[in-house]
């Protein structure tokens, strides 16, 4: 490939990126309009929360506990060299609340619920179910897309909070039960290090942003997938890839901007 062709290729990718970004923005606006205008689809939303939130519960709780346990173990082994093992609670708590909780929850939810959402909507495109809705004068964005995107946004902070709580519990188990740190020391170190406004609120904000991102990307990829089985699988894969990268990029941006 000559240099001109390479530049041409680059230009093509850049154009396609901008094109996709524009379509995504329009899509997001359509979702917001659908949410703001009647009818309010409570039942569909509850079902979506069930699919996204409840079905992700086990993986979130188990992963949270495991991450808390390993953080506690690693933290203890490092801190004990400086004789600062009484700060273990702070280390575990701050890492979980500020960073690992929202990010890992979002990544896990992307793999568990985001891919499922993209596949479900993609299948509905492939089997003409969404066209069927449009022919029945029902907006598929209003009925199918918006409740799923909203459910993801709402469920993410809840899942993240559960992840963190289970992580703190796992950290406590290892730190207090295994390493013999005093339980009161662990908790007081945790409580004095963690601030509601700076840490907890920021953590929830991060989770909320990630939830919106994953919901938007998953529904967009499903909605715009090619109406074939290959299209559905491509939509699923690209949801996981794009959403994961976006979560990590936005994590940096949020941290840099708001110091969360």
């Amino acid at each position: 490939m000559g240099p001109a062709a390479a530049v041409q290729e680059l230009g093509w990718y850049a154009l396609r990126f901008v094109d996709q970004l524009g379509k995504l923005t329009v899509f997001a606006a359509q979702i917001l309009r659908a949410l703001a205008s009647p009818p309010v689809r409570v039942r569909v939303f509850v079902q979506a929360v069930f699919d996204v939130g409840v079905l992700s519960l086990i993986i979130i709780c188990v992963s949270g506990t495991a991450v808390g346990m390993v953080l506690s173990l690693q933290g203890y082994n490092t801190l004990v060299r400086f004789g600062a093992e009484q700060s273990l609670g702070a280390v575990v708590g701050l890492s979980l609340i500020r960073e690992l909780g929202p990010v890992l929850t979002a990544l896990l939810a992307t793999g568990r619920a985001g891919s499922a959402t993209a596949a479900e909507i993609g299948t509905m495109v492939a089997t003409e179910q969404l066209d069927g809705l449009r022919m029945m004068a029902v907006d598929p964005i209003d009925l199918v897309v918006a409740p799923k995107a909203l459910a993801m946004t709402v469920a993410m902070p809840l899942l993240s909070a559960l992840f963190i709580t289970f992580g703190l519990f796992g950290g406590y188990l290892v730190g207090v039960g295994l390493m013999g740190i005093d339980g009161g020391t662990y908790m007081s170190s945790l409580q004095s290090a963690v601030d509601f406004r700076d840490d907890v609120l920021g953590s929830l904000l991060k989770a909320l942003v990630f939830g919106g991102l994953v919901g938007l990307i998953a529904t967009f990829r499903g909605f715009t997938s090619a109406p074939t089985s290959a299209g559905v699988s491509a939509a699923t894969t690209s949801t996981v890839v794009v959403a994961s990268v976006c979560i990590l990029l936005f994590d940096y941006v949020i941290t840099a901007l708001w110091g969360v």
Binding site: T123, M124, T127, E128, Q129, D131, G132, L133
Partner: peptide, 8 residues
């Protein structure tokens, strides 16, 4: 529709 397109 060809495939029915009922909501599955």
């Amino acid at each position: 529709f060809q495939g029915g397109a009922l909501l599955d």
